[in-house]
Design a binder for these strands. Structure first.
Lengths: 224, 224
DNA sequence: TTCATGTCGATTGTCGACAATACACATTTT
DNA sequence: AAAATGTGTATTGTCGACAATCGACATGAA
């Protein structure tokens, strides 16, 4: 049997959600845009039922807002959203990092280290976009290792909204070296079995909280 | 115009989600039960579309699990779920309490104090169920005052799953006085403008974390 | 017995059609 | 002119029907 070609006869709902998610994240569909069921119906050549259910799925991920009897709109990420997210993301990623450190198996650490190597390559080549991508994967992998599914779910929602925020890349544009150095230190901590788990938690939480002021500054300066 | 009769021509989806939520929380529908679209269709006298969308809504709230092409089932809350929730709930409610304290207006404090009075009455009358109910409202109100909508959303999801866990009431059965005393202290802190916000955060976080061991003990002893 | 295969009923996935509603614009009223 | 009212069209909410699929049971083979 041919096993390298992944089976993908998943339901229409998943395919549509995925397509829309990508379109929103890469800017094809802009924030505030209205998603009209009948338009997408033509575009995809399906009926409205799976589209409506895909909307609910996107809503769960925090990518769209559903206004009953009015329509579905791509969420506008505001400065206030970002401000609300930071303290939550900081403590939760901190906890996730500690749990990950406590529960990590060798194979899992290896995988993260591989991602780190990609970050390194991107950083050396000054490849902002690549760095941004692998940086995101790095955190995703760390969060996964925490094996706390509720934490994984919540952080996924918060982080996907972060991705919508294009300004994010500006942060790494200016301080790519700083960010890289920070993650290098993080990896050193993770590899040393003698590290105090609470220190890992603090380190990650602080790393995120420290990014906040500059992040918000970029919002004010560069957007609009 | 007659205004005391609340308008309720909300969509079918909301009505159905609400009905199902209550049925799940009060035990009419038990955990693990399968929710069959065609059955509910007869029960409510509506088509399957709003029912399917209501399922997605319940799924977002963490009350059901949707298995594609198989069916929708009421979530089974396991010991592991509770263990995953505690650290998250503790830090987030802590943050919520601090923010609430920092942003609280007089009217809002009054409302919380009224709820506390109901808790007091229930505690004095040894009315477990009533105490449990107002205790939940107390925390809800405090969380609302934090005005961090993301925090409010996440905590709502976590807390509703907690409600599904019937053992919860056992906790208060044994230690209703202790719980009451704790919330009395909390209210004192909230009323004193000189309290350090960080202390409010610690107090609430510790209060939740302290409950964990006994909570888990009840699970092991009394369930099944 | 134990495992593989076939068949059937119940249930979910998807569709196209109709009903209800919201918004934009035109018309009337003050 | 400004506000209130009427009308039309685009869009969402709901429905009933059909197609695809799953799981239980029956049948047959090792």
């Amino acid at each position: 049997m041919n096993n390298n070609q992944q089976f993908k006869p998943i339901g229409l709902v998943d395919q549509i959600s995925e397509w829309l998610t990508n379109a929103i994240l890469d800017g094809t569909i802009k924030e505030g845009d209205r998603l009209i069921e009948t338009r997408l119906q033509e575009l995809f050549g399906v009926s409205r039922s799976p589209i409506r259910e895909a909307f609910r799925e996107l809503n769960k991920m925090g990518l769209v807002v559903i206004k009953p009897r009015i329509g579905t709109f791509v969420k506008r990420i505001t400065r206030n959203d970002i401000e609300e997210q930071f303290p939550i993301r900081a403590v939760l990623e901190g906890i996730a990092a500690r749990l990950a450190f406590e529960r990590m198996k060798d194979g899992e650490l290896d995988k993260i280290e591989k991602t780190f190597k990609k970050m390194k390559e991107a950083a050396e080549g000054n490849d902002i976009k690549g760095y941004w991508k692998y940086h995101h994967i790095f955190h995703d992998q760390l969060i996964d290792v925490s094996k706390n599914s509720m934490l994984i779910d919540i952080l996924q929602q918060i982080r996907i909204q972060h991705l919508m925020f294009k300004v994010a890349s500006l942060y790494y544009k200016e301080d790519l070296q700083g960010s890289f150095e920070l993650h290098r230190k993080m990896l050193v901590l993770l590899k040393d079995r003698k590290t105090d788990p609470r220190y890992v938690e603090d380190f990650v939480r602080n790393h995120i909280e420290k990014a906040r002021p500059r992040f918000l500054q970029y919002i004010d300066e560069d957007l609009f």
